[in-house]
């Protein structure tokens, strides 16, 4: 069985916090319920419209294959059964940065950055949640509204 790196249910709080800049892409801000994570994510709203208040499951996985075979980096065409079947919106990208929150404090939070071909994601939360991640890791982001 595939080992997921992260899974949680988020609630969309804001869309385009800095104003709408792009026609087809919006930046959403969402909070998770279980781990109290903050997420900023660029979503192609043309193919997957979202609105404030939406609740959705978000999963980060290293591979889409159900048996956990690591992703080769090459895309294989064909309708094989995969993790994506259960989700509505799937993106593929790369984790490029892990850093600690710049504003220091007693309970410092860790930020995880990933880019899905230019659509960016920032996940902020407790350091322990970041332990599964590695730099330059290939990531699949899967979303499903609940």
């Amino acid at each position: 069985m595939v080992e997921l790196l992260f899974e949680d249910i988020f609630t969309l709080t804001r869309i385009d916090p800095d104003g709408k800049k792009f026609d087809r892409v919006s930046r959403i801000e969402a909070h998770s319920e279980q781990f109290d994570m903050l997420m900023q994510l660029d979503v192609n709203t043309e193919v997957y419209p979202m609105s404030v208040g939406d609740k959705f499951t978000m999963v980060l996985a290293p591979t889409l294959s159900l048996d956990g075979t690591p992703d080769t980096g090459f895309f294989v065409q064909g309708g094989r059964k995969s993790l994506a079947d259960k989700f509505e919106y799937v993106m593929h990208g790369k984790l490029y940065k892990i850093s600690e929150e710049s504003s220091g404090g007693p309970h410092v939070k860790v930020e995880i950055y990933a880019s899905f071909g230019g659509l960016l994601m920032m996940l902020k939360g407790d350091p322990s949640n970041a332990a599964n991640f590695e730099l330059d890791q290939r990531l699949f982001l899967l979303m499903r509204k609940v």
């Binding site: 193919v47 994506a84 993106m91 593929h92 071909g117």
Partner: peptide, 16 residues
């Protein structure tokens, strides 16, 4: 490369 968007449609971005 693997498309940035796999579902609902396969889409590549200009950055790719």
């Amino acid at each position: 490369p693997t498309p940035a968007l796999i579902k609902p449609v396969e889409l590549w971005t200009g950055k790719q």
